[in-house]
């Protein structure tokens, strides 16, 4: 994914000159993005061991509140960010998708840890989803098992950088007729149905490994 830099059309020299006098000049979009990036409220839910690191990040030592993302909301209706922290079992996946559907737009997802990105150590297991990106779009992938608190902060900074580069006119949630209800998988006799949401995820073609002569 590439992001076009969000450059202001105001002359930077003039801008800094005005800033010295206490006047901030910016595009509406910059103000909007600044507001968004400085108040990403995560949803308060954890699935496994990564959640412990998430809690550690919220505590005084690392203090995620310095980024404006410290207000863990207990309701999906009030949160902007879903930190999928931990193993997504097939039993839990429908609930995760449902919670994602209940979040108001704009909403972001960080997958924290190997399990939620790809299934990690349980990827060959019968009961673990091989990555939550099969059902919902993911913004930042954060590898590690589990990632340390600083790594989560780094992931959050990456998400902030992504938000900074969003265009207010082109963002999905201001487009006409957008209805983002992701189908909630059913827990059938042979795992989840459907196995993935073709809108957001397609099986990757196996890369042919060629041996260079």
């Amino acid at each position: 994914m590439t992001h076009a830099p969000n450059v202001s059309q105001v002359d930077p020299a003039l801008k800094s000159e005005l800033a010295k006098k206490g006047i901030a000049v910016m595009k509406l979009q910059e103000l909007y993005n600044w507001g968004r990036r400085s108040s990403i409220w995560p949803m308060q839910f954890g699935l496994a061991c990564c959640a412990i690191e998430m809690i550690a990040t919220a505590c005084a030592r690392y203090d995620i509140d310095r980024f404006g993302a410290g207000l863990f909301r207990a309701s999906p209706r009030q949160s902007d960010l879903m930190i999928v922290a931990g193993t997504v079992t097939k039993k839990m996946a429908p609930q995760v998708v449902r919670l994602y559907n209940q979040m108001p737009e704009p909403k972001y997802v960080i997958t924290m840890g190997a399990c939620s990105i790809s299934g990690g150590p349980f990827k060959e297991g019968y009961n673990v989803l091989k990555g939550i990106d099969r059902y919902i779009p993911v913004d930042v992938h954060l590898p590690g098992c589990p990632p340390r608190p600083e790594a989560l902060l780094h992931g959050l900074m990456k998400l902030q950088a992504k938000i900074d580069h969003q265009d207010i006119e082109k963002t999905e949630w201001y487009q006409k007729g957008l209805k983002r209800e992701f189908p909630i998988p059913e827990f059938g006799p042979n795992g989840l149905l459907p196995p993935y949401n073709p809108e957001v995820w397609q099986p990757q073609k196996r890369k042919e490994i060629t041996v260079p002569a």
Partner: peptide, 30 residues
């Protein structure tokens, strides 16, 4: 995205060719 930081690869390598790193700022969009 799958590696679980267990360090088994470092332990079993008979040629001391693979070691665990300290790098942790690895978040990616893709």
């Amino acid at each position: 995205s799958i590696c679980m930081n267990c360090g088994v690869c470092e332990e079993v390598c008979p040629f001391d060719a693979i070691f665990m790193d300290h790098e942790f700022e690895l978040a990616e969009y893709g």
